[in-house]
Amino acid sequence: MTTLENSVIFDKGELITNDYFIGNAYLKMLVPEDTVYNCPIGNVTFEPGARNNWHIHDGGQILLVTGGTGYYQEEGQPAKLLKEGDVVTIPKDVKHWHGATKDSWFVHLAISTNVELGGTTWLEPVSDEHYDKL
C-alpha cells in the first residue's frame, strides 16, 4: 500500500465531513474563493479507496496530481488511472468523479475555473459495485 502521510507537498488539511465522499478525504484550501484572484485552489488528500460522488462544475476544473495513484472518470467514458504529475482538464458541465485507488493514497490540487459561472452540483455516489470493477 502506498502511503503519503509524510510526503505530501502541502498540509493535508481537515477531514471532509459532508455527504459527498465515500471514505476519508481531507481538504486544505490554498487559495480561498474570493473576488481578488477568482481562482480557488484546494489540496485534496484521499485515503486508499476514498472517492467523491459524481458531480458537475458549472465553470470547469483542473486537477494537478501531486502524489499517489487515483482515478478520474467522466460519465460514459472508461476511468483513467492517474499518477503524480498528471494534469486533468475538466470542461464545464461534464459529469465526473475522482478518488484514490484501493491500495494507494491520492493527492491532487483542485483548481476551480470560471467560478463566476457557478459552483459544484453534487450528484449520486460512485457505487461500490462500479468502483470495485476498476
Rank of each mutant, 00 (worst) to 15 (best):
Lys12Ile: 13
Thr66Lys: 12
Val126Cys: 02
Trp97Glu: 06
Leu4Ser: 01
Ala25Asn: 07
Asp34Thr: 11
Thr101Arg: 02
Phe10Val: 12
Phe21Gln: 02
Glu129Leu: 06
Val44Trp: 02
Lys133Arg: 12
Phe10Asn: 14
Pro91Glu: 12
Leu81Ile: 06
Glu5Asp: 13
Thr17Met: 11
Ile111Thr: 15
Asn38Val: 07
Ile16Phe: 09
Leu82Asn: 03
Val107Ala: 12
Val126Phe: 01
Gly118Ile: 12
Leu15Ala: 11
Thr45Pro: 00
Val94Met: 15
Tyr71Met: 00
Gly60Leu: 08
Leu117Asp: 13
Leu109Lys: 15
Leu134Ile: 13
Ser112Cys: 11
Ser112Arg: 15
Leu63Asp: 01
Ser127Tyr: 03
Tyr37Phe: 13
Trp97Thr: 08
Tyr131Gly: 10
Asp19Pro: 05
Glu124Ser: 03
His130Ser: 06
Ile22Cys: 04
Val107Phe: 02
Lys95Gly: 10
Thr121Gly: 03
Asp11Phe: 10
Leu109Asp: 10
Lys28Leu: 14
Val107Cys: 08
Thr45Glu: 01
His108Gln: 05
Trp54Arg: 08
Phe21Ser: 03
Thr101Lys: 05
Val31Phe: 12
Ile111Asp: 15
Ala50Thr: 02
Asn18Cys: 05
Phe46Trp: 05
His130Pro: 06
Thr66Val: 07
Arg51His: 05
Thr101Trp: 06
